[in-house]
Amino acid sequence: MTTSYNKNVAQAQSQTTRNVVEEFNGLDTDAKLAWLYFVYEKMGDTITPAAPSAAEPELAPMLVGDYLQLSDEEQLEIMRDIVDCKDTAYSRAYGALKENNQLFIWYVWAEAMGDTVVGMPDNYESTEAINDLLAQIEEIDFEGQISILRTIAGEMGYSDVKPIPTQAETGKTSSL
């Protein structure tokens, strides 16, 4: 399997979408997970149709099937490992997927939260930073929202696969 794209080239292209991604990256691990949860809670009806229709769930049996059989503590640790790009089996499985499949994973998990996926603690209180980021993404059009989520999802997980250097970088033409 290969990585989804050159992680040095952001999918979020406008300054507004890049700002949201930067602010998201400034959150701690659990705040990132909470933000993703709230995004799917508040805007799931508009965001989620893009992910399942373009995804290939059969590429992620470990993250869709096996994951749902784990304890809440194990699931939360896996989510944290993926957000923190740790070198673990689940984080590698996630990092090997393309962005649409990565978004699909978060969609499946969000849909199952509180049921077969660990839910938000009942006493969790959102922070001002999370609320500000939610307000920002709600003001962005659908394409911008998806580009933000693709960028965020694509930056998570672990992969040691590097992008292939371009001709400009190597000075060599490709051989046939």
Rank of each mutant, 00 (worst) to 15 (best):
A135S: 01
E99A: 12
E22C: 00
A110N: 07
P57R: 01
P163A: 08
I164G: 00
I82D: 10
N6E: 14
M156D: 00
M120Q: 07
L63A: 04
Y37G: 12
D81L: 00
P163E: 10
A89F: 05
Q11R: 13
A51Q: 00
S174E: 11
Q75A: 07
E41N: 12
E128Y: 14
M79R: 08
P52Q: 13
N25K: 12
A168N: 11
F142T: 03
M120A: 05
K98G: 14
L63W: 04
E111H: 11
S91G: 05
Y40N: 03
V161S: 13
A89R: 12
E99K: 06
W35Y: 14
T116Q: 08
Y124W: 14
M156L: 11
A168Y: 14
Q13N: 09
D132V: 10
W35N: 04
A31K: 03
M79Y: 05
T151K: 10
A31F: 03
I130M: 05
Y158K: 00
Y5K: 14
P49Y: 10
T3L: 07
E74C: 03
G154E: 02
M43P: 03
S175F: 00
T166P: 03
L133A: 06
W109S: 00
L59V: 08
Q136V: 11
S126D: 10
E139A: 15
F104T: 06
Q102C: 08
L149S: 13
E77C: 01
V117Y: 03
M43H: 01
Q167K: 14
L33D: 03
N100Y: 15
D160L: 09
T29I: 12
T3M: 09
S147P: 13
S71W: 04
N101W: 11
P49A: 11
K7D: 12
A34E: 12
Y94V: 07
C85R: 00
V9G: 03
Y90C: 09
D72C: 01
D160S: 15
T127D: 02
A54Q: 14
S91Y: 05
P163I: 08
T151P: 07
G44W: 08
A51N: 03
S174H: 11
Y158S: 01
M113Q: 15
Q15N: 09
V117C: 01
G26N: 13
E58K: 15
E99T: 10
R150W: 08
P57I: 07
S174T: 13
D72A: 07
L68F: 03
A54I: 09
I146W: 02
N123M: 02
L176A: 14
G157H: 10
E56P: 09
F38P: 01
Q13K: 15
F104G: 02
E139T: 15
Q102I: 09
I137R: 02
E22V: 08
L103F: 07
S4Y: 13
G119L: 05
S147A: 14
F38S: 06
L70R: 15
Q15A: 08
R80S: 10
L63C: 04
S159E: 12
S14F: 06
N100P: 06
C85H: 05
N131A: 13
D81Q: 13
M156E: 01
E169N: 09
G144K: 06
V21G: 05
R92T: 11
V117D: 02
E58V: 13
W106I: 01
G144T: 02
